[in-house]
Design a protein around this nucleic acid. Structure first.
Lengths: 137, 137
DNA sequence: CCGAATCCGGCCGGATACTG
DNA sequence: CAGTATCCGGCCGGATTCGG
């Protein structure tokens, strides 16, 4: 049994998915990098529980600036992960809600978020140990 | 039934995991950002199938430079996701393998990678449509 | 073969001030 | 309330060169 057959029986391999041509890999990565940028994952996660207004989202996301909140939401809207609805009222009200595509991402990223939450202490220890081993600097 | 109870019966909420204090959220995010940076996910995924040498890893990862490969592997080693073994031979041989912690991450990130692979076309279309709607610029 | 060192352009992302 | 505009420091990441 070849290596390809062996791994295909349990899980897809990264090498198969990312594509072998540089262009394919770049699309693949451009999607991954959206997942990986500073605030996207948290925002998509937040919106999973229901639609939220701009300020609510800002208050729920500690440390984010208005600029980055706007910017990140635009990117997510562009990718079709988030839907924006502006109500022409005074004062203005804008609601952000997860799209079908956005919801389909929720399960995978919550798994990653859960992993991060579970292992963050272990990783913090590992980093400290590594930094001490390669002492000073 | 409260909102907290409702969501807790199906899935953990992002808001619960990320922590509410800025410091907690920052640790949480520092772990997520490692997942999200340009090459980490692909490399961890590659190493899931078995240990690889530096050059093998480089050839399997289209577009990566030697500098970034080294740098990313160092970060992964620091976090305890990857183990580095150098054999004092001539020519030198260095093997990278996934640690137990690294393997525990494989399942979640493969789920995300699979999602990315599945929806990359849809996202590409969404981006094109968005860019056209907000035409020129 | 497996890196380290250096240089450097770009853009990510925070701070601040200002609009409808 | 929900942004936009502007400035700007930092660091991400590629290219190149050098070393063990």
């Amino acid at each position: 049994m070849s290596a390809e057959q062996r791994v295909s029986t349990q899980q897809p391999s990264m090498h198969d998915m990312c594509g072998h041509a540089p262009e394919e890999a770049e699309v693949f990565r451009s999607v991954l990098s959206r997942i990986g940028d500073k605030w996207s994952v948290m925002l998509v996660g937040m919106l999973n529980d229901g639609p939220l207004r701009f300020t609510e989202l800002k208050n729920l996301t500690p440390g984010i600036s208005a600029r980055m909140l706007t910017h990140t939401l635009r990117q997510l809207e562009r990718d079709g992960l988030v839907e924006r609805t502006a109500y022409p009222e005074i004062p203005p009200r804008v609601e952000y809600r997860s799209t079908k595509l956005g919801k389909s991402l929720t399960s995978p990223i919550l798994a990653v978020a859960e992993w991060a939450s579970t292992h963050q202490n272990e990783i913090t220890v590992n980093r400290a140990r590594y930094d001490e081993a390669n002492d000073n600097e």
